[in-house]
Design a protein around this nucleic acid. Structure first.
Length: 270
DNA sequence: TCCTATGTTGTATG
DNA sequence: ACATACAACATAGG
């Protein structure tokens, strides 16, 4: 479910817990979301720790806590396909898919994930761990340049552009719906080989990546909201959905392993 | 019953 | 070593 802006929104739900102590941790230690993570260490470090701050980058989230003793605790959370963060009352009793629960005096912070494609990472160290610092630059930062985009497209020259946009190593936060929204706005067919985009197409792609990221953050990131009818977003799963720009019947196919939606006539292979 | 789902990753192949 | 394609993961809902 969550892409760039949904992740930012879900993380913001936990804001009331920042600056507050974690009284107790409740987890499902064998849940798949903890694969590769030492849950005993996680519980030991976070129990009684003060939750200091949080940040999101693309689809990744980081929560920083100061344990009662020892170095900083770093909790990484990825929501996968069905993950969600929510806040419940103090004393809340976790239900089936609530795999990580942080109890505080005045509220309970909950990470639920039915399908468990999400992931929790943990480290205790003076500096932020590699899995957090070693990430691609934010798409809205100055580091993400049109030149960097062009170079990446050349390296992934024979893959369909739709599949390339899903690569988190270059486009952190972009997921299935954002990729389709961007290509639709840039008037590029999702099957177009990445290496065949000319300068004009690359420029449009660059601008629409930035535009969709910025607008999604504005509409969804702060306070959950729906993109307007002028976007592809509300039409892409509609039965018999039509393009809000041309009125053409939207087409669907599996591209890059994912169901893809585009507007024929507007997005054509060249 | 069968199909689908806003994601990543391990593995096979070129 | 690098790029690409795809099955696998696990659950719920139409």
């Amino acid at each position: 479910m969550p892409e760039l802006a949904e992740v930012a929104y879900f993380l913001s739900r936990w804001n009331p817990g920042l600056g507050q102590k974690i009284e107790k941790i409740l987890i499902h230690p064998h849940a798949r979301i903890f694969r590769g993570t030492d849950t005993k260490k996680l519980i030991a470090a976070l129990s009684g720790a003060k939750l200091e701050r949080s940040e999101s980058r693309g689809k990744q989230m980081l929560l920083v806590a100061k344990p009662k003793k020892g170095a900083r605790a770093w909790l990484g959370v990825h929501l996968g396909m069905t993950g969600e963060l929510r806040v419940e009352k103090a004393g809340f009793v976790p239900v089936k898919h609530d795999h990580l629960v942080l109890e505080q005096a005045k509220r309970t912070l909950v990470f639920e994930d039915a399908r468990m494609f999400g992931r929790v990472l943990f480290a205790q160290s003076a500096e932020a761990p590699d899995w957090w610092t070693r990430q691609a630059p934010d798409l809205l930062s100055r580091e993400f340049t049109e030149k960097a985009l062009g170079e990446f497209l050349k390296r992934r020259k024979s893959a369909p552009i739709k599949a390339v946009l899903l690569m988190q190593e270059r486009f952190p936060g972009i997921g299935n719906w954002m990729a389709d929204e961007i290509l639709w706005r840039a008037e590029i067919h999702p099957k177009q080989a990445a290496g065949t985009l000319d300068a004009g197409m690359t420029n449009r792609l660059y601008r629409e990546i930035r535009w969709v990221c910025r607008e999604a953050m504005r509409i969804i990131g702060k306070k959950w909201g729906d993109p307007p009818k002028s976007w592809l977003f509300p039409h892409r799963w509609e039965k018999g959905g039509t393009c809000p720009k041309t009125g053409a019947k939207l087409q669907h196919a599996t591209i890059g392993g994912r169901t893809t939606c585009w507007s024929p006539g507007r997005q054509v292979l060249v």
